[in-house]
Amino acid sequence: MPRRRTLDPLTELLAAVLLVVLVLVVNRWEFSLGVLALVVLPAVLLSGKPRQIGVALAVVAGPLLISSLLLHGLFFPEGVSVLATLGPARVTWEGLTFATMMGLRMAVFTGVLLTAAMTLDIPQLLAAMTHRGWDRKLVFVIGSALGLIPHVALRAGQITRAQQSRGLVVGRSPLSRLRALLAVTTPLVIGLLTDASERTSMLEARGFSSSGARTSYLTDTDTTGQRATRWVMTGVVLVFSVVWLVVT
């Protein structure tokens, strides 16, 4: 069951970004681990879709963590204390430490931002951007792109199947793959551009390029309290960062 939304999407996003900043500023593995265990984990579990977010986290961060461990664990020329030598590769203590530190940072970075993004209601976010008076062209491009992605993926799938039924076979050679990609992308782009040119005239007819004020059909979830909280949060993190970076 999705949790009941009480906060403005911008407040949540800002909180996530500031948390990432804190993790980068403090730069201690204890703090990173603490954020991961005490903030990200409960947030994922309480989000209402822990499995979805868990899978997304594993798919996005998993390969990076593994390849980082292989890269720095095996090849770290700066490393002094060699634990094992495997041909050209040397397992060093420094390399493993570096890989762990970087891995922890990547895990927190993905964990915080992806959890915030996946619990976000996209229409709410776009409405919030409109209410805050963001450039409406920006709101249009972002909203329209988010809406187009599933459409493009679906259409690409359909075109791929149509071309396969007409005899498209993807071979092993790069040239064959390039030809397959071209056979799919060309009709895809032509179709999308045709749609776009129709959309241009429709938008123009509805006064898209005029500079008047816009009406949003969604209620504003922002409050004076949240606005104040956002400023305070930003100020506190900024001051803390400066102090921390100067002191340490």
């Binding site: 450039d135 999308l192 123009e204």
Partner: peptide, 26 residues
């Protein structure tokens, strides 16, 4: 953004969606 015409703005989401979707096809 403020300088772009409507025809450019309309094709931008298409480019963004293509970037992400073709990455997946590839």
């Amino acid at each position: 953004l403020p300088t772009l015409s409507t025809s450019s703005l309309v094709v931008m989401p298409l480019g963004i969606a293509l970037n992400i979707a073709i990455g997946q096809i590839a």
